[in-house]
Amino acid sequence: MTVVSERLPALGQAARRRAPLSLVLDRESVFSWLMMALPLLFLAALVGYPFFYGILLSLQYRPVAHTGTFIGLKNFITNLHDPIFWQVTANTFIYTGVATFLKMVGGLCLALAMNQHFRMKNLVRALLLLPFIVPTVLSTVAWLWMLDPAFSVVNRLLVALGWPKPGPSWLGNPTLAMVSIIIINTWRGLPFYGITLLAGLQTVPPELYEAATIDGASGLQRLRFVTLPLLRPIILIVTLFSVIFTFADFQLVYVLTHGGPQNATNLFATYAFDIAMGAGQLGLGASIALAMLPALALLIVALTIYMRRV
C-alpha cells in the first residue's frame, strides 16, 4: 500500500502539465466510451455481424451454396410442426435442468466435505479439477468405452449380482442414454462447481457460525440459515455459467451418441448443426439455433428471480 501512495504525487504533477484536451478525455463519459470503443467494435464485428446475418438466414429458405428466398417466419412455423424439434426442446431442458441440479447439490456437498481440515488439501483440490481441464471430446471418448456393457465396471458388478447378461445398455436405452450424458456432464462440471463454492465457504466469517452455535443451531440449521444465504450470490454465478454451457452443449453429444438413440439425446446445438450442415438447410438450422435464445433467456431470468427470492 505504501508504495502505491508514494508514487501518487509524481503522477499528479505529470498530469497537471497536460493540455486541456486531456480534460475532455478525462470526462467520465468520454473516457468510458473511448475505453469501450475497441472491445465494442470487436464484438460488433465478430458477434454482432454474424448474429444479424444468422437472424437474416433464419428468415430465408436457404439451402447451402444456393441463394436464399425470404420466407418470413416459415422456418419457425416448420419447427413448431416438427416433432423432433419438440423432442429436442424437451431434451435440452431436462438435460440442463437435471445436470445443473446435480452439479449444484453435489458441488455443495463437495464444498462442505472439502471445507474441513485435512492433509494434502491442495493436492486433492487440484486433482478434483482434472475433469474440468481435460478436453471434452477426449474424455467423452473414454466414457464411450466405459459405457459399453461388456466393459462397463457397473455392468460387471450388476451381472455378478445376478442381473441378466450383459446388463443395462447405457447408450441403447433412450432413458439411460439421457442419464449417461447427464452423468458425464455432471462429472465434468461438478468439481468446478464444488471448488468455486468451497472458495465461497471460506469467505464466511467463523464468528457467524460461533454465534449460531451459541444460539443453539444444529449443523443443518447452520447450513440452512447461515451458509446458504451467504453463498447465494456465488451459487447464482456458477449456476448461470453452468446453465449457459450445458444448454448449448455440443461436443459431448456429438461424440457420444450423435443424438441417438431415436433422438433421445439430441440437443438444440446438435440438431441445429445436423440440419444446417448435414441437411444443408442453413435457414432452418439458423432458426433452430435461434430458438435457443428465448429459451435460454427465459431460463436465466427465471433462475435469477428465483435465486434472488430464496
Binding site: F51, Y53, L57, I244
Partner: peptide, 16 residues
C-alpha cells in the same frame, strides 16, 4: 452476448 449460440455464428464467421 453469452446467450448467442455458437452454431448460429460459425458460417458468417467463416466468411469474415
Amino acid at each position: 452476448i453469452y446467450l448467442v449460440p455458437q452454431p448460429l455464428l460459425f458460417i458468417p464467421l467463416a466468411d469474415v
